[in-house]
């Protein structure tokens, strides 16, 4: 990797200040950033490591919401009794990210901020209608994801926690890329008081998206049968070595039905 300066500030404010440097980047778990830097595809001038900042990790129930600190590791989300009770689909999703060692380092905040089109957490955030809390404001998940590796985060803005409203039912089904184990198609289905939401990751050529036709079909009848005939338009989907858009479109249906079945 290219040389960089390393900073490990003790507060969010100091971290934000350090991020004022040109080409500074936040280091959370580093599970995506460091491999990218090793391949010299990213070359930040300053790495601002959040690990010393108190209060950025932890899991709690706050009323009708589950609140997860940005630096909370995937493994801790997966193993949390609180998460398993409140949103079992979210705990299951966390257990499917990367591999056990990656889950010990990778963080929810890092995953959301990176917004890899094949990442898992964006599907949960979008389907559950999460609120992404930063050092500056609160952002609804629907407004947060802005396409491939793009988010609503501004320069110097740091995710501090994520608030998930508790759904009635939820589940995540993932078809893994055979090589990388990232999501080739991941479908998160949530039935909430506000209605049913279906979010798809891994497949969209502009990142995570909601599946309106499935949401409509499931609104009145939350069962796999309700979406058996719902087609997914392949035109906006990714094609690569491991599957073309038609295949991904088909898998969206399969994963959605399986998720609904698991949630129901």
């Amino acid at each position: 990797m290219h040389a960089f300066e390393y900073a490990a500030p003790a507060s969010v404010a100091d971290a934000a200040a350090a991020l004022a440097n040109e080409d500074a980047k936040v280091l959370a778990g580093g599970q995506t950033l460091l491999p990218t830097m090793k391949q010299r595809l990213a070359a930040p001038s300053v790495l601002v490591d959040l690990r010393k900042i108190d209060g950025l990790s932890g899991i709690s129930r706050e009323g009708d919401a589950l609140v997860i600190g940005a630096m909370t590791r995937h493994a801790d989300v997966a193993a949390s009794k609180v998460v398993q009770d409140a949103i079992p689909g979210l705990a299951a999703l966390a257990a499917l990210i990367g591999d056990p060692a990656v889950r010990h380092r990778g963080t929810i905040g890092g995953s959301l901020a990176n917004n890899d089109p094949a990442a898992d957490y964006p599907a949960a955030a979008l389907a559950l209608g999460a609120t992404i809390v930063t050092n500056k404001r609160e952002i609804a998940a629907g407004d947060f994801f802005k396409g491939l590796f793009e988010t609503a985060l501004e320069d110097g803005e740091i995710i501090t926690k994520v608030k998930f409203p508790l759904p009635e039912k939820s589940a995540y089904e993932k078809f893994r890329n055979p090589a990388s184990r990232y999501a080739m198609v991941g479908v998160f289905v949530a039935k909430t008081k506000a209605g049913v939401r279906v979010a798809v990751t891994g497949a969209g050529s502009s990142g995570v998206f909601r599946h309106a036709a499935m949401e409509a079909a499931l609104a009145g009848n939350f069962s796999p049968a309700a979406i058996a005939g719902v087609k997914t338009d392949a035109s906006g989907l990714l094609s690569d070595l491991h599957g073309d858009a038609d295949y991904r479109a088909h898998l969206v249906g399969v994963m959605a039905r399986r998720a609904v079945e698991a949630a129901a």
Binding site: Y6, L34, R105
Partner: peptide, 17 residues
Amino acid sequence: VDGKAIKSCTTLAVACE
């Protein structure tokens, strides 16, 4: 690291202070 398996190729030494 602190009792948990991690990938040492994807962890900075300075982050293990």
